[in-house]
Design a protein around this nucleic acid. Structure first.
Length: 257
DNA sequence: ATGGTTGAATGTCAA
């Protein structure tokens, strides 16, 4: 089974290249973030024609997540289902082939000290509680998506300069640590160590992909049974240097399940 | 010092 995650940065603008990539790579599951489209405008039929089941949690202009799978998707859950928490379209979860898949678009945080940064901190704390309220570590649970946090100095270019900025700040990393301590393993780091393996390159930095000025902020996590079954986890950088790129690219994981 | 690009909008915000 192949899992993949991709921040599309606007799915309608990205649709041709996403459909091409899907047809070429045929993952069993694809988690998409930043679809930036309302549910009634989502291009569901295009994905169904490629043989995917589609569930979506969208909103106008911003955020928006989708889960695609070759098998049926059941027990679909959108967001925190929490009246007290601001409800951006950032989470869609469902069961596929006995695996519990959580696709999330973690808030960007804008800049340290801003209201949006505080929202990111509270969102991460709420997500930790969401995990233990809805899942068990003895299940096959996958959490993947745009995490918007570089967990270590190996996960961002010029880490000394970036330390303490949004995306590589101790308060973010501590909260991500609380989440993974629940029982999740970063599948990419099971197989690959060292710096320079990035999933996102800023549009505004000239030739950022060629210069590899990027961040590893798109992650696939799994509970112990998933981690034990993970035979490969890799980044497909080609879409970032091809036509009409998103600023992110795909992360994939192969599970022997 | 606060540039530069892109998407969803059609102002300007968010990233």
């Amino acid at each position: 089974m192949i899992l993949a995650t991709y921040n599309a940065a606007g799915l309608r603008a990205r649709l041709p290249v996403v459909l091409d990539w899907l047809a070429q790579n045929e993952p069993d599951v694809l988690a998409i973030q930043e679809t930036k489209v309302e549910d009634d405008k989502f291009p569901t039929a295009d994905f169904e024609e490629l043989g995917y089941h589609v569930v979506i949690n969208g909103q106008k202009s911003w955020n928006g997540v989708a889960l695609l799978a070759r098998g049926p998707i059941s027990s679909v859950r959108k967001g925190f289902q929490d009246d007290l928490f601001p409800d951006d379209a950032r989470i869609i979860a469902g069961e596929v082939d006995g695996m519990w898949i959580i696709n999330s678009y973690v808030p960007n945080g804008s800049s340290v000290g801003s209201e949006k940064f505080d929202y990111k901190m509270r969102w991460l704390e709420r997500f930790r509680r969401y995990l233990s309220e809805n899942y068990r570590t003895d299940q096959h649970v996958v959490w993947m998506g745009d995490i918007n946090i570089a967990p270590t100095e190996n996960d961002v270019y010029e880490p000394k300069r970036k330390w303490g900025k949004v995306g590589f700040h101790p308060d973010e990393i501590a909260r991500l640590g609380k989440i993974t301590e629940w029982g999740l393993t970063d599948l990419f780091r099971l197989h690959t160590q060292g710096a320079g393996h990035y999933t996102y390159w800023d549009f505004v930095i000239p030739n950022a992909p060629d210069r590899n000025l990027g961040w590893r902020i798109d992650h696939i996590y799994g509970t112990s049974a998933v981690a034990e079954a993970c035979t490969r986890c890799w980044i497909d950088k080609a879409p970032r240097t091809g036509d009409r790129p998103s600023d992110h690219t795909y992360v994939l994981a192969e599970l022997d399940l």
